[in-house]
């Protein structure tokens, strides 16, 4: 669904409008995280008395998403580079990583990092929050790798030839020519992956991270009122994904120099 916020003055340029949307949506997100306990506390039983828990759970969910999302983009970039590398061993390594992470359930991966990894490497006894971040980042990284790889492959060979013929180094050719064009292609898929990640972060609940789903379930179990608690939980997720999509749409529009988007 496309929930367009009131539009900016038509006299503003495309970049100004998208920057304004990003700034507003970003501030809205911060405000929600900071102040959401106040409106929630006005709600009737069983939400009102548990408003602070809902707010804290939401903050943890957003933290999980941001940490795993940022790490996931970095991992995805490295894996994409690995898959396109001239070195066969790197291609193989990246291929195996993507194959395993995409071919096994995220729930199993979360449980694996938390329970099985310490028995394999005792020093890797991670906290529940860290374990969830690691599993989510590795998982979304594999999907991001495919998105970034297809972005890199979509850049026309003539672009690299033009840059080289101008005497630009491989590094500058990549940074100034290939990468920006690849990211523009990869961006919609990356955004999709991060929105999925926000929802998938609810699986952290299984290893005891007190994030939004966990809070909702606890309140539901304690008050025997599943309807209002789960609806509240769902609405909070919906608000978060909506704000996130607004930000990412604005990012896409900002780089849409050809004005293809209305």
């Amino acid at each position: 669904m496309n929930l367009s916020l009131p539009s900016w003055p038509a006299s503003w340029g495309r970049q100004a409008r998208s920057s304004a949307t990003m700034a507003v949506a970003g501030s809205v997100l911060v405000l929600i995280l900071w102040l959401m306990a106040i409106p929630l506390s006005w709600a009737p039983e069983p939400i009102g008395p548990n408003a602070a828990d809902f707010a804290e759970g939401t903050r943890v969910t957003v933290q999980l998403t941001l940490v795993a999302g940022l790490a996931g983009v970095l991992i995805g970039f490295l894996a994409a580079m690995g898959k396109l590398s001239k070195v066969a061993a790197l291609r193989w390594l990246a291929g195996v990583y993507i194959w395993v992470m995409r071919g096994t359930p995220l729930l199993v991966q979360v449980l694996f990092v938390y329970f099985a990894l310490p028995s394999l490497v005792p020093s890797l006894q991670l906290s529940d929050f860290t374990s969830a971040c690691v599993a989510l980042a590795l998982n979304v990284g594999a999907y991001n790798a495919e998105a970034i790889r297809s972005g890199l492959l979509a850049v026309h060979k003539g672009q690299m030839e033009a840059a080289k013929s101008l005497g630009m180094s491989n590094w500058h050719t990549f940074i100034d020519v290939t990468f920006p064009q690849a990211m523009k292609v990869a961006l919609p898929s990356l955004v999709n992956n991060v929105v999925s990640l926000l929802k998938d972060s609810s699986l952290a609940y299984t290893i005891g991270v007190v994030e939004l789903t966990n809070v909702g379930n606890r309140v539901q179990a304690a008050t025997f009122q599943p309807m209002p608690t789960l609806v509240t939980t769902a609405i909070i997720y919906l608000v978060l994904t909506t704000v996130m999509t607004q930000i990412s749409d604005a990012v896409e529009r900002r780089y849409d120099v050809e004005g293809r988007q209305p």
């Binding site: 026309h156 003539g158 672009q159 030839e161 033009a162 840059a163 013929s165 101008l166 005497g167 630009m168 180094s169 500058h172 100034d176 020519v177 920006p180 064009q181 523009k184 780089y255 120099v257 050809e258």
Partner: peptide, 25 residues
Amino acid sequence: MVFQQFNLFPHLTVLENVTLAPRRV
């Protein structure tokens, strides 16, 4: 070199296309 398909950098303005290599190289 000038190519058949021009190969301008689509994400940069005309001015940035012309200045990129002198600035970087």
